[in-house]
Design a protein around this nucleic acid. Structure first.
Ligand code: SF4
Ligand code: SF4
Lengths: 137, 137
DNA sequence: TATTAATTCTACCTAAAGGTAGTAATTTAA
DNA sequence: TTAAATTACTACCTTTAGGTAGAATTAATA
């Protein structure tokens, strides 16, 4: 009942890049140190983010990463999808998710509300939104 | 962003026992077949449920399992706690959870609502509630 | 009492997530 | 033009969740 480690990292990385990229490119080294993410694991995540075209990279000395598109255009849900961590419509707490209105357990209706709220949260929150204020991200 | 497999199994097991135990003890064999849970894995879960005193077991021929307490007294949250799958108050989508009101990210407030709803759902739903109606559990 | 149907115990196996190591490729700047 | 700073690639290691195997223990009943 929590986002997996990798997507947590990815969101924090993108958020930090969005906040700082006007000053300079963000190197893996800086990201790793500031965000406290193991360097080698971070670079692995970065290549995924590059391939998915969320960020673009500049190789060589003074290189680094910057967002490819406007931070406003990347939703948290987009990122989660990359790491198979988004919430599907049929997702059910008990891993069944195939019950209809005739046949449903006591949790079904109560689960719908928070599920929809979370889906909305993921879909409506952009990286820009998240990167705005301080917080320990 | 989903309950882990083992707690899903556990909840479905307890729910099924609650629904059927007035008729007869539930053997691991029956539970495994009906609920479609690998037999050997199920027995492993059962011994945990026995040790946690959610169910009691009767050994030997015609043995099986029954709930130890009233199904009304066992909450879903109790079960989730046994499998480290409950939602802690400080649980945060980004694995930080240490931000205060002065310093919080854009997701913080939006995450609070669904989180509280889910915590409430887990704490207020008893095994009895879940076992009531049909569904594919 | 022997058989059988059941739980319990111990130990191991497998797959996936998370993480690490080393090296090649690329670019800048001294 | 060479050294340094950087990303990219390939392969491996570690931990954890999920699952399996086999033998020991228990109790009803034929
Ligand atoms: S009725 Fe219950 S088990 Fe079925 S999909 Fe809804 S929440 Fe899941
Ligand atoms: S502010 Fe954001 S990162 Fe900090 S605890 Fe709240 S949700 Fe988590």
């Amino acid at each position: 009942m929590q986002l997996n480690n990798t997507s947590q990292y990815a969101i924090r990385i993108l958020s930090y890049i969005a906040r700082k990229q006007d000053e300079h490119l963000l190197s893996a080294n800086e990201l790793s140190k500031i965000l406290n993410i193991p360097y080698k694991f971070l670079t692995k995540i970065m290549t995924k983010l590059v391939k998915a075209e969320f960020v673009e990279s500049v190789r060589g000395r003074d290189g680094g990463f910057r967002l490819k598109d406007d931070a406003q255009k990347i939703s948290v849900d987009d990122v989660l999808n990359l790491f198979n961590d988004s919430i599907k419509d049929e997702q059910c707490l008990l891993g069944i998710g195939a019950c209809d209105t005739q046949c449903k357990c006591a949790m079904h209706d109560q689960w719908m509300k928070p599920k929809l709220l979370i889906q909305k949260l993921f879909r409506k929150s952009s990286i820009k939104d998240i990167s705005k204020k301080g917080s320990k991200i």
